[in-house]
């Protein structure tokens, strides 16, 4: 990889903050989106990619950040968590209710939306434990992309849900509603997959794509986490210190 001095500095900053599990304040020049994705890739070099997560899926947020598409991060095997989830493993965790697609077939770049629909093996409830090195989640678009799009960890439901889905996702902590959002806010699954496959050079059967959240990310504390989704589906987990 041939990257600029600024990008090299950002890469080192992200790498060290992630290793030392501490927050940092943003500083230095903007490296641009392409360089940020190169940093993201360099930080995960040689690791198995279990899938991807989408971020900034709402048009409003994209506009706010000055982009016209979502962003993505890589999902590595150790990011797929099991309950109980320990908060001590994160820098500054936040939660989002999500849906995830698990691909039933390969999806090459440039495929048609119909091919993407066919490649959907199933949908599952998911909870995204975001994490960021950027203090207070204050970052520019290249900062967050370089930091793997705030990739932390994920829980996946075990019931396969089939499209089309209607309704909402509601996330509860200790019986109290934390946040909820409508499934329409996730956008069209096939279009998301086509876009992502184009960005990452194709998706493979078995990979998981977290589709982003229809609701705002929230801080959390230990307790019982309960995600309710369409068709009476639920994902229950425990959060510990």
């Amino acid at each position: 990889m041939n990257i600029s001095e600024d990008a090299g500095a950002l890469l080192e900053r992200v790498r060290r903050a992630r290793e030392e599990r501490r927050t940092v304040r943003r500083a230095g020049a903007e490296v641009g989106l392409d360089a940020a994705y190169e940093i993201q890739a360099a930080l995960g070099e040689g690791r198995e990619i279990k899938g991807y997560k989408l971020g900034l899926i709402s048009a409003a947020k994209q506009e706010q950040m000055g982009i016209d598409s979502p962003i993505y991060g890589r999902v590595y095997p150790e990011m797929l968590l099991e309950s109980p989830v320990k908060l001590s493993g994160f820098i500054q965790p936040r939660l989002e209710p999500e849906l995830a697609v698990v691909l039933g077939g390969d999806l090459p770049p440039g495929a048609a939306p119909g091919a993407a629909s066919l490649a959907v093996g199933g949908l599952f409830l998911a909870i995204d434990f975001l994490d960021s090195i950027w203090e207070g989640y204050r970052f520019s678009i290249s900062d967050v992309v370089a930091d793997n799009t705030s990739g932390g960890g994920f829980l996946l439901g075990e019931r396969l849900l089939d499209v089309p889905l209607e309704g909402k996702l509601s996330l509860y902590l200790n019986g109290e509603l934390l946040t909820e959002g409508p499934l329409e806010a996730l956008g069209k699954v096939d279009e998301r997959l086509v876009w992502l496959a184009g960005e990452v050079g194709g998706l493979k059967a078995g990979q998981v794509v977290f589709l982003g959240s229809p609701a705002a990310a929230l801080e959390t504390r230990p307790g019982t986490l309960e995600l309710r989704g369409p068709e009476g589906s639920a994902l229950i987990a425990r959060i510990e210190e």
Partner: peptide
């Protein structure tokens, strides 16, 4: 229905395959 191999195969991948 589809080959399943790896060291990090998840229950969700199993259902999809």
């Amino acid at each position: 229905g589809r080959p399943l191999e790896g060291t990090n195969v998840t229950p969700q991948e199993v259902l999809v395959a």
